[in-house]
Nucleic acid binder design. Structure first.
Lengths: 199, 199
DNA sequence: CCGTCTGTGTCACCGAGTGTCAAACATTGC
DNA sequence: GCAATGTTTGACACTCGGTGACACAGACGG
């Protein structure tokens, strides 16, 4: 075959379908019985496959949950890249994070459940924070690149951290009432607060 | 016995000694073979006790390492409490974190090894971040209490987060060369940078 | 000398993950 | 239609972190 990857004929499609199904079932069970209260056996069995197969689609139990927010992080990073280079860093970050809002409010109940799940489980939360750290570094690197600063510039890193912190403080409050509040407004308020910060 | 806890005669002393020994051995082995590359069996055996006994002294493998920084966090919180209430929040935080510096520079090589260990292991790092989050909340609550603000004040939470972030960005750089740099100066520089942050 | 209390080791167990292997399956070439 | 081929899957065995149960030892007071 010359095009080893070109035809996602049936194979790739089925793979995606199984993965989707597995993720769906997992999220439902985890939200219902809690992260620690759900075993992989239960998830696999409920999805109609073996435990071993679960691990062929997801690296770990945490992965099923964190993957969603992971993709969202990549999306935010992409949006940041598309922003004008002369925009002040914090404004660019705010805009990038705002771009992710519709994705969450799109299916608000599910997103809220996911966030609540993460914030309720220490193990999950810890992994999530670690992921946020990577995102923070990537955002800071992008900000640095667009204005010719060194990639590990401390000031930009602090700015990126502050922006993500704003998000992390707002999200759980939004998730607490199943995403009925105006997430976009909450974010803007918090960013305004941040901008008025004076030592 | 009327004084059930009063005489830490032999029992408590031995307990502390065993715990100390266990922690010492663990830190050495973990620093040598990495966090994932060291099993609890190895630690327990090297310390001359059974695996079960290890867990009677430490809740988990992560606990052996994180305990130290945990205590340090409590110390920082205590220092913050002793600061004048009218001091600007960020200055108070800087002073509190500076107070922890001598503790680390006291035995710099060991502290640096510990920090490198944490930052090298994803699992450990994730747990560490979670701990920092608790500390952040506690610091923010203290700042709020001293100036009569609500305990979950967003602005103060952001300030506490920024201060801890400064520390977390400086520490690995300091640890990279075995703690030979001037940690106190590095911290002050970073805090100065933070203070000059304008959106 | 006898109960009791505490620390310890042994054993059995669970759940997350991983490597291996053989069977099942679909795909392709003839 | 059939054989060769490659991929997906399930079954099994194993490691490691962590927990509960129980039995045994020694220190202590009566």
């Amino acid at each position: 075959m010359i095009w080893k990857t070109e035809p996602p004929n049936m194979a790739e499609r089925k793979r995606r379908a199984v993965r989707e199904e597995l993720g769906e079932v997992a999220l439902r069970l985890l939200a219902e019985h809690g992260f620690e209260g759900t075993t992989i056996d239960q998830i696999a069995h409920a999805a109609g496959c073996s435990r071993r197969t679960f691990f062929r689609y997801y690296k770990s139990k945490e992965d099923v949950i964190l993957e969603v927010l992971n993709d969202l992080g990549d999306f935010v990073l992409d949006v940041l890249r598309s922003r004008p280079a002369d925009e002040p860093p914090l404004d660019a970050l705010r805009a990038a994070l705002q771009a992710a809002v519709p994705v969450m409010t799109g299916n608000a109940r599910k997103s809220a459940a996911l966030i609540r799940l993460i914030f309720a489980s220490p193990a999950l939360r810890a992994r999530y924070l670690h992921r946020q750290l990577d995102l923070e570094a990537a955002l800071a690197a992008e900000l640095a690149a667009r204005q010719g600063a060194p990639a590990d510039d401390l000031a930009l890193r602090l700015t990126a951290a502050a922006a993500l912190k704003v998000q992390d403080l707002v999200l759980p409050r939004w998730a607490e009432d199943d995403g009925r509040a105006d997430l976009s407004a909450l974010l803007d308020d918090a960013f305004a607060l941040l901008k008025n910060q004076r030592a």
